[in-house]
Write a protein that binds this DNA or RNA. Structure first.
Lengths: 186, 186
DNA sequence: CGCAAATCGTTGATATATCAACAGAGTTCT
DNA sequence: AGAACTCTGTTGATATATCAACGATTTGCG
């Protein structure tokens, strides 16, 4: 069991993560100072060091927490219908749209397209692995690699489009449509 | 000088006040328990007693803080044009619409119309006192009492209507219109 | 009624956050 | 190069919040 975290720890860490996301949507991560984060989170600067090594560590743990959350949802979703299983995902993206839009938009230090996107893709492809239809024969002659890459990039692409365009359709509609398409591809 | 409050005190008190406002917009104040408030504010129940006697004390101080804020704005506004002076007020009502709509809606314990509304009216009338035109002669034969009551109830009434109807016009528009009307009445 | 559960207000021990201050490392400006 | 400035990471003393527990009321229910 996790050793039941103190309320204050959760609150400060939440404020700090929220602050980083907000600030990253406003300026480059490198231009963000520890004091900026502390101010935005309404937390003493020193407090940050009680939880994180530095701002990079904070960003790492922030991203990690989202992937963990996605991982949790995977477990929950694996035995459901495609369309039903996707609903909570789109709801999750909607609730945390600022995080996802910011992370998908942010370039890596070197200017390369975000490693976040790459990792997100890998996560989805991993999740799709067990869902490929190997029984109906419908997919004979198709390589797993290709199908996974196809479905994965499509999925990420749609999410990216949906978020960037202000989430024009509600999560349930998105789940239904994307679910239908993914089902055909795997 | 105020003895510079600790960050934690401000944060806790803010959460608690916000929690009470939210809860009051959902159910009767008497049905709200201390534990409810603690949960909503994400604060330990015992912490509440470090700041307040009980939930009634909390509500008192909550309301008081808003009247103090209004009092501060009065000082700032007294030497301005009517219309310009009203803008910050309507902006303030807009920002804190949940508080005002809840308080204006809430009945007192006995079921009487809210004493909050009565006090708000008194505050505005007090503020209007110095603004009555005694020079142009335009108001001769008119009693101060009557003018104050007239303008005060009108002002409160418009605010109430504006908030209850989802603030259909922006603060600046409201300030201009109400400012024009108040100027005519005093 | 009478019991069970919920709520209250308080306590003591402990954990966390705050604040002011410091030295060191970069920056910027001249 | 050097002065002035900013940011960093760390420290020690202190203030505040947390948690679990308690007895005392109050509330809800059979």
């Amino acid at each position: 069991m996790m050793p039941k975290l103190d309320r204050r720890i959760l609150k400060t860490q939440e404020s700090l993560k929220k602050a980083v996301i907000e600030l990253m949507s406003e300026k480059n991560f490198d231009d963000i100072t520890i004091q900026d984060i502390a101010d935005r989170a309404n937390v003493n600067r020193g407090t940050i060091y009680l939880h994180y090594q530095d701002k990079y560590d904070l960003l790492d743990k922030l991203i990690e927490s989202y992937f963990n959350e996605l991982g949790e949802m995977d477990k929950w979703a694996c035995e459901m219908d495609w369309i039903d299983a996707l609903v909570p995902y789109f709801e999750y993206f909607e609730q945390n749209y600022l995080f996802f839009s910011t992370m998908l938009a942010s370039k890596d230090a070197k200017g390369a397209p975000s490693s976040f996107r790459t990792r997100l893709l890998a996560t989805f492809m991993e999740g799709f692995k067990g869902e490929i239809d190997r029984e109906s024969g419908r997919n004979e002659g198709l390589n797993d690699d290709v199908m996974l890459q196809y479905a994965g990039t499509a999925y990420v692409g749609v999410i990216e489009w949906w978020i960037r365009n202000g989430m024009p359709y509600p999560p349930k509609i998105m789940a239904k449509q994307v679910g239908t398409l993914l089902e055909r591809s795997l």
